[in-house]
């Protein structure tokens, strides 16, 4: 009888997945996602695209807030910087889309060095407020730098064509997003199990102890900021392409809250949690609407007129309820279920 999960070597502690069936199921999932564009209609496909793009962005925030424990309320700032970097490079200066994606990562990463610098002195709430301030300042900078960004008029973005392969159709663009999401997932999982990832978690758990054990707080905090901003910037570029139009209004402050809600709902500091949380949060407004529409058409009308407000209310409600009743998020719930399944009928 299996009695528990024991790690016997250091190697087992840092493996990517600890049981072979996970590889099988992951492969099934990826195959399903590859088949999805042929099966789904365009409405469902748009949700799939949003989920994949959001997964990239959330994984980016997860490195900073989940692993390193630095709260950022201003990640929408990196998102909008990434989107503008791509739009300016590709639409305005006709560069290759791959250069655009590189720029979408590098420009926010440079910006994050400026925002990250105060984080070397500040912790917790103060850092959250600084990043919040940053996201408002960046919007003004973008609106004022009209020669580069067209100011309030925004920049329209075409779907890219890379090496002769056009990502113009919805199905092809979904594959592009899928590629980015899978790469980001592997990147964050690998960061987590490397020296840097362990340093991040050590800083989150107790920075004084981490310092004593020889972790360079300044270097690793800045590294967390740069990686996080790089990935978030990529998500911003993808989102800009999805919207086919990049403007400051397309990236409201609510996106920062949404990303934090996703992390809390999924389970802070877990890549699996970020994915699960994204799926729940993106589909939640639609699911709620479906449930209510079963009861009355009147409520359905409210959902159409006040869609944005209802969405934000749901986010707020979900944040509060999860923090109150399931602080470890969906991942925590999943672990509990798994343990119950393995140990049944015993409690532990």
């Amino acid at each position: 009888m299996r009695t528990g999960d024991f790690k016997q070597t250091y190697g087992e502690l840092v493996t990517l997945v600890d049981s072979p069936p996970v590889w099988l199921w992951s492969a099934v999932l990826v195959a399903g996602l590859i088949a999805a564009p042929f099966v789904l209609n365009s409405y469902a496909l748009s949700f799939l695209m949003i989920i994949l793009i959001t997964v990239v962005g959330t994984l980016g925030l997860n490195i900073l807030t989940g692993y390193t424990g630095l709260i950022s309320l201003g990640h929408v700032g990196f998102l909008v910087t990434g989107a503008y970097a791509y739009a300016v490079l590709v639409s305005k200066y006709q560069m290759h889309p791959l250069v655009g994606f590189l720029g979408a990562g590098v420009v926010p990463a440079l910006a994050s060095l400026i925002v990250g610098a105060p984080s070397l002195r500040l912790k917790g709430l103060y850092l959250a407020i600084t990043t919040l301030a940053f996201s408002f300042i960046i919007n003004t900078v973008i609106l004022e730098a009209r020669w580069l960004t067209n100011g309030a008029r925004g920049i329209s973005v075409q779907r890219p064509e890379i090496f002769g392969f056009s990502f113009d159709s919805d199905a092809a663009f979904t594959y592009l997003c899928l590629g980015f999401a899978v790469l980001t997932l592997f990147a964050t999982l690998n960061i987590r199990r490397s020296r840097a990832g362990r340093a991040f978690v050590a800083i989150r758990d107790n920075d004084t102890a981490a310092r004593v054990m020889g972790i360079n707080l300044h270097a690793y905090k800045l590294f967390a900021f740069v990686t996080s901003a790089f990935i978030t910037g990529l998500a911003g570029a993808l989102y800009g392409i999805y919207l086919s139009f990049v403007s400051v209004e397309g990236f409201p402050f609510l996106l920062s809250i949404e990303a934090l809600a996703i992390l809390i709902v999924g389970g802070l500091g877990s890549a699996l949690g970020a994915v699960l949380g994204t799926i729940l949060i993106v589909l939640l407004p639609e699911a709620t609407r479906f449930v209510f529409s079963l009861f009355s058409a009147q409520i359905d009308a409210v959902f159409t007129t006040g869609a944005q407000e209802l969405k934000s209310m749901l986010y707020g409600l979900v944040i509060i309820l999860f923090l109150r009743f399931q602080p470890r998020g969906l991942v925590g719930a999943w672990h509990d279920i798994r343990r119950m399944w393995v140990n049944w009928p015993l409690r532990y």
């Binding site: 709260i71 309320l73 917790g124 709430l125 959250a128 609510l254 809250i257 934090l260 809600a261 809390i264 006040g306 944005q308 407000e309 209802l310 934000s312 209310m313 986010y315 707020g316 409600l317 979900v318 944040i319 509060i320 923090l323 109150r324 602080p327």
Partner: peptide
């Protein structure tokens, strides 16, 4: 609860109150 959790609760509350105005 940890400060992070309580502060996030106030953020959630903020979003709810803000949208309730329109209703």
């Amino acid at each position: 609860e940890p400060v992070f959790a309580t502060v996030m609760v106030t953020i959630g509350l903020a979003v709810i109150l803000r949208s309730s105005i329109n209703f």
